[in-house]
């Protein structure tokens, strides 16, 4: 019975870990924002961690958890370096788009260019704020520069 439960536990955890992994993989492949891509990598690592933990418990081996610890350590290093590089790279182009970097492309091939994207159709509803009559509304420069809604 216990063994069956262990087997069932392992089965489920492996599935969850795999689902997490593939979601991270999907995100890595789809998204163009560098930071989001890195987050998806971390997500994949989390999925792996779950699998490792499950195997460790199943086989009654500490090695699974050790591995997870090392994964955490390495992920941290990786995050540090990667984010530094991302910053440097983004300073060059001004944005975090990965599709800008196509210099490894073969000679003579056409680069990938975004086609014209329509603006987002529905505006975020913003309830208008009416100033009292006779007074100019306050215009917040910072607000204009940096939208608060993300």
């Amino acid at each position: 019975m216990n063994d069956v439960n262990e087997a069932a536990l392992l089965h489920n955890y492996l599935l969850v870990g795999m689902v997490l992994f593939v979601i991270g993989m999907t995100g890595f492949l789809i998204r163009r924002n560098l930071i989001v891509m890195f987050l998806c990598v971390e997500m994949m690592l989390q999925g792996i961690s779950l699998s490792l933990a499950a195997w460790g418990r199943y086989h009654n081996d500490w090695g699974g958890q050790m591995m997870i610890l090392f994964i955490i350590a390495v992920a941290s290093c990786e995050a540090a370096i990667a984010l530094t590089l991302v910053l440097v790279v983004s300073r060059r182009t001004g944005n975090l788009d990965v599709a800008v970097w196509q210099d490894l492309r073969e000679e003579g091939e056409l680069p990938f260019v975004d086609r014209e994207l329509p603006e987002e159709t529905t505006e975020r509803p913003q309830s208008p704020v009416l100033p009292p009559a006779g007074r100019q509304p306050d215009v917040d420069e910072d607000e204009l520069m940096h939208r608060s809604h993300v």
């Binding site: 789809i30 924002n33 944005n95 939208r147």
Partner: peptide, 13 residues
């Protein structure tokens, strides 16, 4: 790097 929030390239692949 991107204080404006989401950009054009966040919407497409």
């Amino acid at each position: 790097a991107q204080p404006e929030g989401h950009e054009v390239y966040d919407r497409v692949s």
